Amino acid sequence: MDLVSVYDLDPGPSSVIAERQEQRLLLEGLRAISVNYQVVLELHYWEQLSTKEIAAVLGVPAGTVRSRLQRAREALEAAIGALSRSPAMLESTLTRLDDWAQHCAHAMGGRRG
């Protein structure tokens, strides 16, 4: 009797497909929001800059950065929600945003993080 389950084979084909769907959904969502929001999200998630660092890069107060990050996340959630075919995919895509950003940064040459 085999003692290996499909779960033990993780990441299995269905996990890889789901991850790619999440990535595609995230990319489409990012493309649907304004460039200003894309920039602040990239600096925060991909470059892992602090609010103060982002403020220095953009030449705006830290409070403005916090506001933009909040509005950018809301815009991204709305864009992904409009593109998503299921509530579960929307939730998993937004929940995994930090993990996905770190994975992308690592894949692009080991940037900060």
Rank of each mutant, 00 (worst) to 15 (best):
D10S: 12
T95S: 10
W46C: 10
A62S: 15
G81C: 06
G110W: 08
E19Y: 08
L83Q: 13
V39C: 07
E28P: 01
S14H: 04
S84I: 06
D2S: 05
L43A: 11
L97V: 14
R73K: 11
H44R: 12
R96T: 15
G110K: 03
W100V: 12
V65K: 08
E28N: 14
D10P: 00
D99T: 12
A72Y: 04
I54Y: 14
A72C: 01
V39W: 03
L41H: 07
Q21K: 08
S86W: 09
Y37N: 11
E74Y: 01
A18N: 04
S5T: 11
H106Q: 09
G109W: 08
G59M: 14
L49D: 10
L9H: 01
S14K: 02
A107F: 07
V60D: 03
G59F: 15
L90E: 14
H44A: 10
I80R: 09
W100F: 06
Q23P: 00
S67Y: 15
A107I: 11
R85I: 03
D10K: 04
R111I: 11
A82L: 09
L3A: 01
V40I: 10
L83T: 08
A62P: 14
V35M: 07
L83E: 07
N36S: 12
L27D: 15
M89Q: 13
I80C: 13
A101M: 02
E77S: 11
L76C: 09
H106M: 05
R112G: 00
N36K: 11
A32Y: 04
P13E: 05
L49E: 13
N36Q: 10
R66K: 12
V16H: 02
T64N: 10
V40S: 03
R96D: 14
